[in-house]
Design a protein around this nucleic acid. Structure first.
Lengths: 223, 223
DNA sequence: CTGTCTCTTGTTGCATGCAACAGACGCTAG
DNA sequence: CTAGCGTCTGTTGCATGCAACAAGAGACAG
């Protein structure tokens, strides 16, 4: 089960991508009639979709006024990263307790491929692999509710938009992969305390990277 | 900001209470027309409400078939308690870092009142206070996103229904209040590692109590 | 008696119409 | 020039109509 129901409504996905694409600046109005024309459906399903997106924190619905693209404030991003640290740490700890599960080999391969991508200077592929590593930790925790909340969190963070910027720091890349390796080692040792701590340190470090970077880069992270 | 939008729609709250009240057994159908008559609104707002409740995990919408009351499986309850442990632990740690904030005095008073309620054998009041203690930890973490996810989690757990059963174990009550005291002490000492650990231990212990109790009690926790 | 096919009924999913409201613009008075 | 007021447009919120679909009952053949 992913973020909403069993079979993700294509419409929800499409509208979400539209707002995540960034082609609407924050604060831009998303009128129901406009979207219904854009996606060739009636206002009713658009309405339902917008409510979901509001719930995910991607848009803001001002009652009787309209729906607007919402960019998280800097403070919210900090909060979300704190949560991310907690959830991923929890997941790593749970995964460590599970012993030898196939996810561990997936992580192993991920690290190997990450090394390869680093050698190839393939930043895009590297970003993908990072995402995959973290996602595997989550699914490997074997806790569907945790996964649900995590997906929700990542949607709110619009994570890929953030991580692309940091993927260009070569120093960070090396450190990050090394941290991944430590996490996996701890998990293999069934050291769930260590795994949780290592994962949290890793998330914390990457969050710091993203936040300090975006501050200087003057991205439109309002407030 | 609470669980959904700024000003909680009364309808959502009312329908949620209806399904949480337990007067519909799990699996019972919730037809839109029935609810629309029950609450004297049209099907459209009912529909939106049901989608929200599905998202909260309280009902299951089988497309083209209908909406049904959903009781979390035992496995899901375990998962939710794992999450609860993580989130509340995280919150306690964050609160500990904040130094002297008014929430600490609220917690202090809460413990005092809990002692009083214990002396008075007032189980209902005690359950309230427990809930309040945990909620204060959350708000005291000063992380609105954490609070959002927490509220969502608690809705899924239908927590009060569970905790009422455990409130009758006098031994557990004493231990629980004592654990609360330890948590507060750690927070006052700004020992965020200790606070987090203490909080997690506490949540873990109470979860164990609830789960072992309900297993023997044969509550309708299916699966 | 059992398996299958059809039909019927109840339900959802979506489109659309209408009323109510928020906000902006322009006009007027001071 | 400015403050205040009225109107007007665009938008949402909700009600309702209609088509499509799923599941169950019943009949019928084997």
């Amino acid at each position: 089960m992913r973020v909403d129901d069993g079979a993700e409504t294509p419409l929800l996905e499409r509208v979400r991508q539209l707002v995540l694409s960034g082609q609407f600046p924050p604060g831009a109005p998303l009128s129901e009639v406009f979207l219904s024309q854009e996606f060739e459906v009636s206002r009713t399903p658009i309405r339902e979709t917008l409510k979901q997106l509001q719930h995910e924190g991607l848009v803001e619905i001002r009652p009787k006024v309209g729906t607007f693209v919402r960019e998280p404030t800097r403070r919210e991003i900090v909060e979300l990263f704190q949560l991310k640290e907690g959830l991923e740490g929890l997941a790593a700890g749970l995964l460590a307790r599970r012993g030898n599960v196939p996810e561990l080999d997936v992580l192993e391969r991920n690290i190997a491929e990450s090394d390869q991508a680093t050698a190839d200077q393939d930043a895009t592929r590297y970003a993908e692999l990072v995402h995959e590593f973290h996602r595997t930790i989550i699914t490997g925790s074997d806790n569907s509710k945790l996964a649900e909340h995590y997906d929700r969190l990542m949607n709110q963070l619009a994570y890929h938009r953030l991580v692309l910027r940091t993927a260009e720091h070569p120093g960070r890349i090396k450190a990050s992969t090394s941290e991944h390796r430590v996490v996996l080692e701890m998990i293999r040792d069934k050291d769930h305390f260590g795994a949780e701590a290592a994962m949290r340190n890793h998330v914390y470090a990457s969050a710091r990277e993203v936040l300090t970077d975006s501050r200087t880069a003057g991205q439109p992270l309002n407030s």
